[in-house]
Simulated scan of single mutants.
Amino acid sequence: MTFFEQVPEPSRGSRPRRSGARGARTAALLLLMAAVTLGGLWLVSEDSASDEPLLSRILPGLSAATPALDDEFAALADRMVLTPEGREVLASTQPRFVDAGELAEVCGSDSHGTDDTILLGCFTGFTQSRAQDRIVILEPTDDLVGRSLVTTAAHELLHAVFARMPGEEQSRVADLAAAATARLAADDPVHEQIAASMGGDEASRATEQFAYLGSQMRLDPVHDAELEEIYARTFEDRTAILPR
């Protein structure tokens, strides 16, 4: 999945918008073809000769150790006040800064923005291998992009966090995020941001709500306590990253 980040209003963070998942579908198709070529083996099974999942033995690159964050993203992780778990997820996506042209190419966008929107970053990945998750962010070459950097990175990181949740936990988080979103003021701009990011894809509602709430919104301390506990796995102090 790919996401578009709109330039934030002074009181808001970035506004992601979703495009198609062509890269994800292509990668999934290639993986399927590899499975067929190898005789229709079960990609996630184990056999008596090894405790290592078969997928890892077929494609050892998928199980490679998580690389360390480079200095720029280590500093960004500090600014986001990430927990060790949050830093590990960020590092696993091999985040990198790119120019606008490469960002549009990686994120699968034919759009170059409008007068008030630009592409700031995206998260890509596919369910067959979370090891292929990636985050790319526009190089912060001006003040506007620089000011949105923490919000953009936090938003994309939360997509990666959500993607790694087991299905049962995703369902629970989806319910919590939906309830928290419903409690926001009806005229809060985040509702339009979420709708625009979904682009009509109902399946992306949960991850968009989870990412928007976690990177931009102050939540109800009573009703949303469970959701805050989930965010606390990623952020040591989530309030420190919220747009002022």
Rank of each mutant, 00 (worst) to 15 (best):
I135T: 03
R218A: 12
F73Y: 05
A179W: 12
T151M: 11
T114H: 09
T83S: 06
D99R: 08
A68S: 14
Q132L: 14
R147N: 08
D220K: 12
M217Q: 10
S111L: 14
M1Q: 02
A74V: 07
T207I: 14
R17Y: 04
T181S: 10
E88C: 10
A206V: 08
Y212N: 02
Q132T: 12
H223V: 12
S19H: 04
S111Q: 05
L31T: 08
E228G: 07
V7E: 06
E52A: 13
D51L: 15
T234C: 14
E85T: 14
I118H: 00
L76P: 01
D115H: 11
R147I: 02
R205W: 10
D220P: 08
A154F: 05
R25T: 12
F4I: 14
T234S: 10
G146E: 09
L43A: 03
L176P: 01
D224N: 09
R57E: 06
Q193D: 14
L157G: 02
M217A: 06
T181G: 09
R244H: 00
M198E: 10
P16D: 05
T181Q: 07
T37E: 08
S204M: 13
L176F: 12
S109K: 05
Q209M: 13
V89N: 01
G125N: 03
D143H: 13
D133K: 01
I194Y: 02
L31G: 03
P189I: 03
P243T: 02
A186D: 06
H223Y: 14
S50T: 14
L138C: 08
D237R: 10
P140K: 10
R147F: 00
S63T: 08
T234L: 15
F3I: 12
E9C: 06
A163C: 13
D188C: 04
E5Q: 07
D188W: 05
L119A: 10
G214I: 02
F4A: 13
F162M: 04
P243Q: 04
Q94F: 00
S63K: 07
A68R: 07
V190S: 00
V36R: 06
A178F: 12
C122M: 03
I118R: 00
V136S: 01
E236N: 09
D115K: 15
C122D: 02
P95S: 03
I137L: 11
D142T: 11
Q6H: 11
L242P: 00
H112S: 13
A203G: 11
A180Y: 11
P243E: 05
A225T: 13
M80R: 00
Q132Y: 07
A91H: 03
E9F: 11
T151Q: 07
A196L: 09
R22P: 05
P166N: 09
A206M: 09
L157S: 01
G108C: 10
P221D: 06
E88F: 12
S92R: 06
P189S: 02
